[in-house]
Design a protein around this nucleic acid. Sequence first.
DNA 1: GTCTATATGGGGATAGAC
DNA 2: GTCTATCCCCATATAGAC
Lengths: 206, 206
Amino acid sequence: MADAGRTKKKTETPRSPVGRKGVLDVAARLFRDQGYGSVSLRKIADAAGIKAGSIYYHFGSKDEIVEAILDEGIWAVHEKMRRAVAEQADTAGAPVILRAAISAHLRALLDVSDYSSANVRIFGQVPQSVRDANLPARRAYETEWDDLLARLQKKGELRADVDVRRFRLMLIGALNATLEWFDPSRGDAEALASAYADVFLNGMLE
Amino acid sequence: MADAGRTKKKTETPRSPVGRKGVLDVAARLFRDQGYGSVSLRKIADAAGIKAGSIYYHFGSKDEIVEAILDEGIWAVHEKMRRAVAEQADTAGAPVILRAAISAHLRALLDVSDYSSANVRIFGQVPQSVRDANLPARRAYETEWDDLLARLQKKGELRADVDVRRFRLMLIGALNATLEWFDPSRGDAEALASAYADVFLNGMLE
DNA sequence: GTCTATATGGGGATAGAC
DNA sequence: GTCTATCCCCATATAGAC
């Protein structure tokens, strides 16, 4: 035979292995859409095109998958937000900087990362041990926001009578809540971010 | 015997029956705390102090329980909000009215109703058929808010360039998100409502 | 109104073949 | 890296006793 030397014929099964990343990708989407308790390893395997038992080659347990997704989710949105802020000119004022940070966070959730949106959706549903594993990453991201807000407040650009932590919880909570109703096929995440920043900066009163 | 006429001795088993409401009460709390998929009928029965099979005397299925909780949850917060607005004087301005509505919604979630908080937490996790059953109640509450905001905007008290529906989604989303971090044993829902209203009305800029 | 007992299916997880 | 086969447990739901 002409190709007797080969032990594997690439033309036979061109379907590449799913791999660890493939499992995580489909799992993140399923968790985001259906929640933690409703997504079984069998559902994940089905969506990934493999069998349930195969998942254990990559992960030791279901919660190990969830932990990886939660960490990656925070990391992704944290990076987007940090870079968006760093890109602003040194002379930029609070409105410009906050608009950039808000837009980065919102686009990470709505456009970019299934991991980030999965984190927001299922964090409150997972076992305590899984939450604990994700806490360091979350705290780091929260600190990034608190430092930014405190810096702007110190420069006198934000109201001094508003507690930074409370405002951060309020702002991030409002942005995260868009996941409950935003439809990516109909909406524009960038325009939405602009509208949110506008209200948070200037308020609703005439 | 002295009490031969009684068929039941109240001193024997003073433990009153749990009943339909008892099941709903504990189920609402469990769903709020752990999410839809993670709460089994066994858990509900345990928390209610009865056996799992007994639940089927009151409900035909798990989802029938969930539907009842979701509907009651919307109804409770809707009533609180409507009454809070109705109690305001005819001469009250937008800031006073909106503060009252915001406070009512937030207190319903954080202080008053396990049903309302359960609704917010699990709506995105339940099967489509359950969501559909809850939609009419949700739409009615959303319309209550949209009508209020449109009325204030028409009077010129709210900015004309902000879309009412978008602002309602933003506001309710921000209030609902407090469930993720608010600790009733440490926080004051009324003070929180005031701080939220302040930022939404006046913005964060100095 | 609640109990016990049970039917049936799906859950996470493991072992060993390929 | 994925498969098949399987273990054991817990899920929803039903039937009939009390």
